Simulated assay, not measured.
Amino acid sequence: MLSKTTVLSSVLLALSVNHCLAQDNDASYEEIAAVDLSFRNAGLNPSPIPSEWMDIQAVLKVSFGDVDVANIGDTLTVAQVQTAPTYTLSETEEADEKDTFDSDRLFTVAFLDAGVYGRDNSNQVTRHFLQNNFTVDDDVLRPSSNVAPITSYGAPFPTNGDGPHRYMQLVFQQYQNFTPPSSPSTGSPIQTMSITDYYRASNGGLGKVVAANYILIEQGQATASVSSIQPVNTQSIDSLASSLSVQATATGLSTTRTSSTSSPTSTRNSSGAMASLSFPSSTLSALVTVAGAALLGGMLL
């Protein structure tokens, strides 16, 4: 006959392993740091995206039909981006704790051409897509069926010989007091705009850029000298990641879940000492159910 202690320990061990595996889906601070630094290296931050707007809390995965953007700054062809993109988020554990991407939150999504790296484009970008009131469902950004796009997706088509254009995909927080600026109006075509003017015209209704990506698209060979975007230094990523981790810990949002939606449970580590584990309440409910069934089964054996 199995002892109650043996059965309960086995259940706790299995759930702790499942919990750890689930956390592997969270975006790491290194991944977040890489996004932030990539925007700086590509000349997209602080202009046209001001530094104070950036608060990356998730990795933004972009797909154009069956074409996936493997890495931030990937080079794609015009033919590969004809299908409107879909967006999937991999959020940090900190964002999960803060409910940044909960289903009741709204977001504005923009697809903008910032031109060729090294040129002074100021805050002027070309709008290829802009829509408000996106929500997040199962980590996927989904447009509202009740809100028409400001600009429906129009595939990039940079001028032949102009050099590689930087196409940003930005996810802005959208607050309850948000009302769309009167310009551009719903149904506007692809055109240049000042992203700063649009942001300010929302009267505080737009928050930080919480997820972002960019791709490069070029047609033909550049007819003039074009500056190269330098890769992000690994040491810089590690340094920024460490800083982000310290900030999260300082605000009480460390890598160990401690929010009100979680309850602490304990188990023993390899040395026999008690080690703290933390499970969401839903997991604990399952624990009680499974442990109870296991104990009952053990007593019946």
Rank of each mutant, 00 (worst) to 15 (best):
Leu106Glu: 08
Leu8Lys: 09
Ile237Ser: 06
Thr77Ser: 02
Ser236Asp: 15
Gln219Ala: 03
Gly154Lys: 09
Asp36His: 15
Tyr175Trp: 10
Lys61Ser: 14
Gly118Ser: 01
Leu244Glu: 04
Ser103Met: 06
Ser188Trp: 10
Gln221Leu: 11
Ala293Gln: 05
Met299Tyr: 13
Met168Gln: 06
Leu301Cys: 11
Gln82Glu: 08
Glu94Met: 12
Met299His: 05
Arg166Ile: 08
Ala58Phe: 00
Gly154Met: 05
Gln173Ser: 13
Ala222Lys: 08
Phe64Asp: 02
Glu91Val: 13
Ser259Lys: 00
Ser243Cys: 13
Gln230Met: 04
Lys208Leu: 05
Val62Gln: 03
Ile229Gln: 01
Thr251Val: 14
Ala293Val: 10
Met193Ile: 13
Thr126Leu: 11
Ile215Asn: 02
Gly163Phe: 03
Pro143Asn: 03
Tyr167Phe: 09
Thr251Met: 14
Ser260Lys: 11
Glu93Val: 06
Ala33Thr: 03
Asp68Tyr: 08
Asn269His: 00
Ala79Gln: 12
Leu253Lys: 10
Phe178Gln: 06
Asn18His: 13
Asp66Arg: 11
Arg200Ser: 14
Asn41Lys: 13
Val136Ile: 07
Leu170Thr: 05
Gly205Trp: 02
Ala222Glu: 01
Ser227Asp: 10
Thr135Glu: 07
Gly205Asp: 00
Leu44Tyr: 08
Phe279Asp: 01
Pro280Trp: 00
Gly292Ala: 04
Ala248Asn: 03
Gly73Arg: 02
Leu130Ile: 07
Asn121Ala: 08
Cys20Arg: 15
Leu44Gln: 04
Gly272Thr: 05
Thr100Ala: 03
Gln23Ser: 13
Val81Pro: 08
Ser271Met: 08
Ser243Ile: 11
Met299Asn: 12
Ile72Ser: 02
Ala27Glu: 04
Ser188Ile: 01
Arg142Ser: 09
Thr258Gly: 12
Ser266Met: 09
Tyr153Ile: 06
Glu91His: 07
Ser103Ile: 10
Asp26Cys: 14
Thr267Lys: 14
Phe157Cys: 06
Leu37Glu: 00
Ser245Gln: 15
Ser259Pro: 10
Met299Thr: 09
Ala70Leu: 10
Ser9Glu: 10
Ile32Cys: 01
Met193Ala: 08
Glu97Tyr: 15
Glu97Trp: 10
Ile237Met: 04
Glu218Ser: 15
Glu93Trp: 15
Val125Leu: 07
Asp24Asn: 12
Ser51Gly: 13
Leu287Glu: 03
Asp197Cys: 12
Leu15Ser: 13
Val210Phe: 02
Ser47Val: 15
Asp138Phe: 04
Val62Ala: 01
Tyr214Met: 06
Ser270Gln: 15
Val78His: 06
Arg119Glu: 04
Leu44Lys: 02
Ile215Trp: 02
